[in-house]
Structures are given as C-alpha cells and as structure tokens.
Write a protein that binds this DNA or RNA. Structure first.
Ligand code: MN
Ligand code: MN
Ligand code: ZN
Ligand code: ZN
Lengths: 138, 138
DNA sequence: TTCTACATTATAATAGTTCTAAACTGTTGA
DNA sequence: TCAACAGTTTAGAACTATTATAATGTAGAA
C-alpha cells in the first residue's frame, strides 16, 4: 500500500512495467520479513484476501513466471501435481513434510557443502539442492 | 518372455495378482541389467514396441503406482509437467539435464554423505536426495 | 496528447493424470 | 472341476494445473 516506490523501481529496473497488478503481487510476496513457499493457488487466495480488484489467473501465472525469470522467485522441485515457488532466493535446502505436505527451509549453513565427485562433460552445474523428506515419528 | 516365474513370484508375494499385463510391464522394467528412468509416456511407447497386445493407459498408471507402493519403483522429484520414475530403487542421486530434460544417476559413492545439522521435532527423516541441475556450457 | 509496445483479461485449449463403471480374469474352496 | 467372488483391465469421461489466444487496456516515450 504505502511504500510502493521500492517495487516500482525493482520492476522498472528489470524491464517490467510497474502495473498495479504486479505491484500488488510484489506487496504480497515481498512485503514481509519472512520468506515463504506457495503454489499458484495459494497466491490467488492471498490476492483475493488482500484486495478487492481481481487479478486474472493468467496474470498471476504470467507474473510469477516473469519474477522467476528475473530471479525474484525460485521454483522448488517437489513431485506434486502443482508447482511450488519460494520467495527465498538464497541458496538453501528443504525439508518436505509428507504428512503436512509442507515445505520447510533448511539454511545453507545447516547443510555441510555437498561434494559431487563426478561431472558430465559439456555440462555445467546450475544448482545443487537437497530435499529431505520427513514424516511423523510414531 | 521366458523366465516369468520370477515375476509371478514377486507379484504374488506382494499381494498383486500376476496378470499378463503386469508380467509384461515387469519384463520391460526389470528384465535388464541396467536401471533407467522413465515417464508414463516412455513406458507406453516401450510397451507398444515390445508387444502386440495393447495395455490400456489406465492399467499402465495403475501398475506403476502399485509398483511404486511396493517399493519396486521410485518417483523422482523434478519440477516438470510429468512424473519421472526410476527402476533404480537403491539410494542414489541425480543430475537433471535441463536442455535434454534427462535424468542421470549419481552413484551414492560419488556424493559425500550429506550432513544436515538441524532436525524437526516429531519428524523422522525418510530420505535425503540431491538434485544437481545442469545445463550446456557455451 | 498521441502512439506503440507491453500487459491484462476472459476464455479456450492442452495435456497429464485420475475416475467410472462395465466387462473380464485369477484364485479359492466346495 | 467349476461356480463365485474379489481383484483387474478397459475405454472413455472427468478433472485440474498450466499455457495459448486474441481482444482490450495501459504505461511510458516522444
Ligand atoms: Mn506426482
Ligand atoms: Mn514446472
Ligand atoms: Zn525455501
Ligand atoms: Zn536414478
């Protein structure tokens, strides 16, 4: 609501026009001290709670993809019927709670550097991510 | 074709009736020294190459899910529009080639043990998997 | 203000997956 | 041996996340 100029600058500097839909989505995604994980469906719900103006589903998809492309969001590889996104773009890892179907960050400092002693010729490493699946003890 | 009794025993001992469709799918998935990764679509193609009798798509899905449940297949977490399965059920890791959209095994021995220095109370670790995304150097 | 490229939108299309319900088959035990 | 039943297969419909389409709207430059 208030200090949108930050988002306007951010969008403009990355070649995205600061439309009111994109600014609203920035507010929802980045106007918080805590980062979080979400699906498109989660985001749509957050938007409808936060505003009276509707944002079309197509725009939500377009915007999330544009932000991902610019590095403002990461997509988390979870096998699921829908994509998970992450507002935490720093290098980190995840617990996936199979009971709650919930992603939880693992700080990079809490994982010893992953050493891979093999390479693929002609390919360079883009990312190394650890997924720790957990379930209830019982 | 020949030694199906092994698959018949395997199916029967896990409570699955050894139907001809399941035996055929066993032959395709497990009758090879090398393990491999596949999508449902890949498997459907392999089946139609290997046999004249059609197996319905619903049965392919049913069978793959049944085998996964019994631990004869693993599902690999990749963000993709389709699920990837693995006939290698041992503990190992993966390269994912983003250009070829191809999974490549990383032997467990080629990855230094991943140490996670944090836990979630009330949860136990089910698996720890490393996904290394790679792309063409250029 | 006018122009234009970019963005939004409703809606249709696509595609992987799951569901349905009818037909079929493997197994059991009388 | 064979009926009976539960498990399985099947074609096709339904579902759902995502992407494409194409018409309308708008931000920013000139
Ligand atoms: Mn899945
Ligand atoms: Mn995806
Ligand atoms: Zn995260
Ligand atoms: Zn593998």
């Amino acid at each position: 609501m208030l200090n949108n100029s930050h988002y306007i600058d951010k969008l403009r500097s990355s070649g995205l026009r600061p439309t009111k839909q994109r600014i609203k989505i920035c507010e929802i995604l980045f106007n918080t001290e805590k980062t979080f994980h979400f699906t498109i469906n989660d985001l749509v719900k957050k938007i409808s709670k936060a505003t009276n103006d509707k944002i079309s589903l197509a725009t939500v998809y377009n915007t999330v993809h544009a932000f991902k492309k610019k590095g403002y969001l990461k997509e988390i590889p979870i096998n699921s019927d829908q994509s998970y996104f992450d507002t935490n773009t720093s290098h980190h890892h995840h617990f996936y709670d199979e009971n709650q179907k919930d992603l939880i960050d693992i700080d990079d400092a809490d994982v010893e550097p992953v050493k891979i002693n093999t390479r693929i010729p002609g390919k360079k490493i883009k990312s190394v991510e650890v997924l720790v699946k957990v379930e209830d003890t019982e």
